[in-house]
Simulated scan of single mutants.
Amino acid sequence: MPHIKTGLIACILLGITAGTSVAASNMVLSGEYTFYTDEMSLEMIGQNICMFPDTQSGKQLPRSKSDERDLWFCFSDFQQARKVLDIPATPPKQGCGYSGKLTVEVADYRINEQQNDDFDVARLVKVISHDKPEVIECQP
C-alpha cells in the first residue's frame, strides 16, 4: 500500500508543477502595464494588472528559443500592484481600463508552458518608476 500512496503523491505533485518553470533571480523590467475593466476583458483575463516588457528588458524573461508567444505576464498580487501603481479602485467613467509606462523589479517569475488560457505571472518586488495611469479607450 505505501507504494500506491507514494505514487499518488508524486502524480499530484507532478500535476501541480508540470508546465511551470521559475526564474532563478530578480529582474528589473521596463515597459507598459495594462489593467482592463471592461466586461469581456475581465472575463478573459480576470482582475489582473499585466506588463508588456520592452524588447531590451524582455530578453531577461526565461523563455525557450522555441517559445514564440508575445512577452507579457501579470502581477501575482493584484491589490498590491494596483496600490503602488496608483491605479484607481474604480473603473474609468469613459474608457475600458488603465495603462502606463513603468520600470519594476519582479521575482518568482512563473512561466505557463501549458497550452491553455493561463498566463505567466511574477511577484512585484518594487516599483522603480511609473507614469500616472492613463485611461484606455474602448474598442468598438
Rank of each mutant, 00 (worst) to 15 (best):
A24H: 04
E105D: 09
Y109H: 04
E134V: 04
L8F: 09
G58V: 00
A18M: 06
V104C: 03
S66F: 08
Q114W: 13
Q94Y: 04
E32G: 05
V106D: 00
D86R: 12
D120S: 05
C74E: 09
M27T: 03
G97N: 04
D131F: 02
Y36K: 14
K132T: 03
T20E: 10
K83I: 07
P53E: 00
D118G: 14
Y33I: 07
C50N: 02
T90M: 08
P2I: 14
T103M: 07
K65T: 14
M1I: 10
I16C: 13
G95C: 00
S76T: 11
I45S: 15
G97R: 05
Q60S: 02
F52D: 07
T34N: 01
F52Q: 07
C138L: 08
I136L: 11
L61E: 01
S76A: 14
N116V: 10
D70C: 10
G97V: 05
K5P: 04
V135T: 04
S66A: 04
C96M: 06
V121L: 11
P53G: 00
M40H: 13
S57C: 02
V28I: 06
K59N: 08
T17A: 09
S129E: 02
S57M: 01
K5N: 09
T17R: 10
D38Y: 11
P133S: 02
D120L: 07
I128E: 00
H130M: 00
E137F: 08
I45R: 13
K65L: 12
P53W: 00
I4P: 10
I12A: 12
T103I: 07
G46P: 12
K59W: 03
M1E: 10
